[in-house]
Amino acid sequence: MSINVSVQASGSQASVTLRGVLDSMSQVTLKQQLEPVLANGAVTQIRLDFAGVQSMEAASAGMLMMLSHTAKSKNKSVGIVNANPAVLSLMHKANLGKVLQIQ
């Protein structure tokens, strides 16, 4: 199962919409898609919309932590919104909230 990623950047905010399953295979796709966003100096806030994410695996949680780390080093913040209850539960179990914002 792949992940579809669409990115919309407007001013300082980049909105990234994800659709599909976030597992060890699709995390590579997500990372590649986010590279231009991380490189964009104008963007200071990255908002990941998880409404279309059906499930997420632990390795992907690790990728999000590293993403947050990279973003911080470039003075950007990362937030996750609209995650479904199952994904939200995994995020809390992984204590992702200690590393990035979950709304």
């Binding site: 060890s24 995390q27 632990a58 992907s60 949680a61 690790g62 932590m65 590293m66 590393v99």
Partner: peptide, 8 residues
């Protein structure tokens, strides 16, 4: 978390 980052 290190284990998850390691896996990724």
């Amino acid at each position: 978390q290190l284990s998850m980052m390691f896996a990724s």
